[in-house]
């Protein structure tokens, strides 16, 4: 495996994101939604639902999933894939938390 250099951007602290909630990082390529689960895991998805572009950051987070606020599609936070029977996918970005600091990479996960 080839180690690639990832540019990690500091975006804030874990405490800045509500548990079972989300915050938005505004980038030149569009908004990215940063989610925090009940277990303090953090995930990042393109803030646009594969259905009709609904802002996922405004949805309800449960387990490791989020329900889109517009028409209730459910997406996996870890992959951006819609839960069956809906089909679709939105970009998913690497994030990590170290010492309470959240870092994001703008290179979408394969």
């Amino acid at each position: 495996m080839i180690e690639t250099m990832t540019d990690w951007i500091e975006i804030g602290t874990l405490e800045d994101i509500p548990r079972l909630g989300s915050r938005v990082v505004r980038t030149t390529q569009g908004d990215i939604a940063i989610f925090r689960t009940a277990e303090d895991e953090v995930f990042a998805l393109n803030d646009s639902c594969p259905h009709k572009g609904g802002p996922l950051s405004q949805g309800i987070v449960h387990g490791k999933r989020v329900t889109c606020p517009l028409h209730n599609w459910v997406l996996e936070l870890s992959s951006g894939t819609a839960v069956a029977p809906d089909q679709g996918h939105t970009a998913c970005f690497p994030v990590k938390v170290e010492d309470g600091m959240v870092r994001l990479s703008l290179q979408p996960q394969a």
Binding site: G21, I60, H62
Partner: peptide, 30 residues
């Protein structure tokens, strides 16, 4: 499920709020 879903959490939030108006702390994420 560990923390419910978009159907049950709002319902539970409401039931708690209605039962204990003074004591219950509203849960915005639900």
């Amino acid at each position: 499920t560990p923390n419910g879903c978009h159907s049950c959490r709002p319902a539970l939030n409401y039931y708690l709020l209605c039962a204990w108006p003074a004591e219950y702390k509203d849960d915005a994420q639900s």
